[in-house]
Design a protein around this nucleic acid. Sequence first.
DNA 1: GGACTAAGTTCAAGCATTGAACGAATGAGG
DNA 2: CCTCATTCGTTCAATGCTTGAACTTAGTCC
Lengths: 379, 379
Amino acid sequence: MSTVDHLRQVRLGNLRTVLLALVDRPGSRADLAARTGLTKATLSNLTEPLLAAGVLVEDPATGAGMGRPSKPLRFHPDGPVAVGAEINVSHLAVETLGLDGETLSRHLVPADIRGSSPDEVLDRVAELIREHTGGRKLLGAGLAVPGVVHDGVVVRAPNLPELVGAPLAARLGERLGLDVELDNEANLAALAHLWPKHLAGEDFVHVSADVGIGAGVVLNGEVYRGASGFAGELGHVVIERDGELCTCGSKGCVERYAGLDVILREAGRRTLDSLHEALEAGDARAHRAVTQAGQALGVGLATLMNLFDVPTVVLGGSYAVLHEHLSAAIQSEMDTRVLAGGERHTTLVASPLGEFAVVRGAAGLVTRRAVQQPERLFA
Amino acid sequence: MSTVDHLRQVRLGNLRTVLLALVDRPGSRADLAARTGLTKATLSNLTEPLLAAGVLVEDPATGAGMGRPSKPLRFHPDGPVAVGAEINVSHLAVETLGLDGETLSRHLVPADIRGSSPDEVLDRVAELIREHTGGRKLLGAGLAVPGVVHDGVVVRAPNLPELVGAPLAARLGERLGLDVELDNEANLAALAHLWPKHLAGEDFVHVSADVGIGAGVVLNGEVYRGASGFAGELGHVVIERDGELCTCGSKGCVERYAGLDVILREAGRRTLDSLHEALEAGDARAHRAVTQAGQALGVGLATLMNLFDVPTVVLGGSYAVLHEHLSAAIQSEMDTRVLAGGERHTTLVASPLGEFAVVRGAAGLVTRRAVQQPERLFA
DNA sequence: GGACTAAGTTCAAGCATTGAACGAATGAGG
DNA sequence: CCTCATTCGTTCAATGCTTGAACTTAGTCC
């Protein structure tokens, strides 16, 4: 720690507070001072370099009352942006996100990834990113994969085993000349519900079924990843100790009863769309399949909630599509199995984000870091 | 924030760092400067008021080499101390703990609490505390109860329902004229393995069976309590969705298979001691009972580890007593059911703390807060 | 006894925030 | 049109923390 490092930390902390307030909504220096608890003097001082760096812009004065009109500050529309990318079994996706939380562009392209080498996949991802972010200054990239990630490397990916072991973050970083952060799709889908806008509170679990079942756990406003990235493996919560054998080696895992493949098979359908149509048409077999899955998922979620004590469950991915037909069974199991103290409720909601939740989270990883480590904005 | 509050925060933060270093072990100003990264000048400055307040003492110079001999600083043996108390179904306990982590006294008295009113119980606790802390300056008290705590109130206590709803922390505080912190015995037993000494790393679960089964979860060096204090309810993790009905309303909870009462019943024994003797003597029925419990507990723990991703499980309470006969079954279930990536291991150890883990944790709550909020030491 | 070494203290310098005073820009009222 | 009230934004001296270098102290080594 050099002489002034401590003071510098204070400044960076205040800068973070100001940026967080601006993510919430634009505001004049005086308004931001009131909202952050800092003084007007400090706000002038802190925002000056951000304006100079082109991160913020000053809007023309708005004279909507007495006194000198304020000049609201907001993120510069041509300022630096973040890009998120998603690698999945059957598609690639990219999204560009501004610091203000606005989506600038999003694209999803079908792609059969299975069998491709990591380098082939990364080439396509890099191309896709370059294609859709031309000209903008990039803060960095977030990359989502369907697997467990630790230290920038995929350590488990039952559905895309080719990716295991390769330093994807570093390799994509080389291709793009950017910092790249790699994370699990479940964690990123959860992050998308937390940043840049709180869509489900500060404590919740986001559950989705795409290939396996993944839960992204948000505790105290932070995605919880565990000591080695394996946290939130809801798919391998045991609900029947002597139940069906799972690919993971255990028995009776939730995934064997509530995985999307199981639901489709039991319902006698090939695709999620076809299943959804059948449900809307009142097909009994489809309803039975979904109800059974909901019950299994509800048992697993009840266990999760008794361990994590989070009040809210967000259904995402395929579960969000099915939620009208799925929620009752889940809720019923949770109601009887989650410990309740007094007025405690468990809330079950469907994600308002569509199929772009994961990429949005990937991009959010980057904008969030930029705000939390504001020194990066001046680089 | 007033003018100098930011600077004061820096100072308090440094004070905390220094105190943490001293909890680790005593040291001279120069040594502490090296360990904390602060300068000798700052260390002189920070420790001066602590010496003046009688929190620290300066030992006589130790001339063990060249140069001016150092005068090690350590916590004053007559300085302020913390007291912990435990209310349980069949006993009360108190422990006095110094800031240096040394136990000054500990007492456990059998007591049948069931049926007593909260005020009666608190009277006895207060008397016990006064009796065993005479003359020492107290930093505060920690109080452990076998139940879920939220905001200083017990909100669930299946085994001591009388305590539910009463503001125990405030009431004991009035009696003693001290700040009192209330917490769950499972959380406090876990804390005792974390503070003042790390006995099991920064991430672990402490599991104990006294009446129910409680898990204290430590994530990133902090006890995780959840949004409303219900976190870590391992006893109500479901291992058989259609299993035995539990008092909580659910079915197939771990507690119905691995609770101490179940083990004793299945083993045909009345007390833990008698069970232990039978196990040592090679009694087959006792071994079967313990093995079955271990299997059930192992399934629940595997689920917990797949959700929290902590590397270590500490067996405490009755489980610690039985661990030689219990561990194999638990470990076997965990080995097949916990997801593993590469070199990941799950470590299962017995708590080195005896029956005083809970009170020690209760007292630790107070010394820990004193170190983390050093301004309290000057009050 | 003198040189050497390391511990602890003193002190001017540096720096982010603050609050008060000040300047700027507008609306209200006569 | 002019003045006053009002609010926004800037300037500036003061504050109090850590720092590093210089200094003092208290021992060992030869």
